[in-house]
Design a protein around this nucleic acid. Structure first.
Lengths: 106, 106
DNA sequence: TGTTCTCATATCAAAAATGATATAAAATTC
DNA sequence: GAATTTTATATCATTTTTGATATGAGAACA
């Protein structure tokens, strides 16, 4: 489970090559990554129930490839874009807060 | 109360000139601003109890002026920087989630 | 099988955000 | 009330993030 999580992070370009590198992250750095991943995963679930990536992109003046990156947990996607996307799926601050609050510290 | 909130937003460079303009924001745009403001205000409270802006800046490889902007709710500060700063004050995902969850929709 | 729809990946110029620096203003301490 | 510390504001070159575009991969379905 931890292994697969690391694989996901590596594939998405996070600065993690080995488990040692992973452990070199400060708790704060890890927490930020976890928060972003939680949001991106939640975004995909919410979006899939309602629309295509292209439709969501249009709603927030973005592009389909960028939504794909957001949902894929890509490193190049900011929290701001994730938040805009979440809100565009109808997520309320309460719901978003819950997603973040449920992030487990490593 | 609403008036003063608008004044704050204007002073910080948000694209809000009049109440009409303010009402032109989509609910999603408003929510994003509210979330950022809630975080910046909470950041100031947390940081003041523990350290100076310069000290916090050093912790996250930022600069004192940027922390000032973050706490001041400046438009040019990303959610990512706000989040990094919050985490550096020891805020947990649970606490951060609570701050966001408590944001009232307009 | 071929067509259509949806999502993923790559590239890139433009825009936004960044840290650094200088310095002013304000608050705190002496 | 002077000195010191802390915070705010302004500018700027660099980096990061962005939307756009092109295109590939895959699934769904005819």
């Amino acid at each position: 489970m931890e292994q697969s999580k690391q694989e996901i992070l590596e594939a998405d370009g996070w600065k993690i090559g080995t488990v040692a590198d992973f452990l070199d992250l400060t708790p704060e750095e890890s927490a930020l990554i976890e928060i972003k991943l939680a949001l991106s995963q939640n975004l995909r679930v919410r979006r899939e129930k309602q629309m295509t990536q292209a439709e969501l992109a249009k709603k927030i003046q973005s592009s389909q490839p960028r939504i794909a990156k957001a949902e894929g947990g890509d490193q190049s996607v900011s929290l701001d874009l994730l938040m805009r996307a979440m809100l565009a799926t109808g997520a309320t601050p309460k719901e978003i807060g819950k997603v973040i609050a449920n992030v487990e510290l490593i």
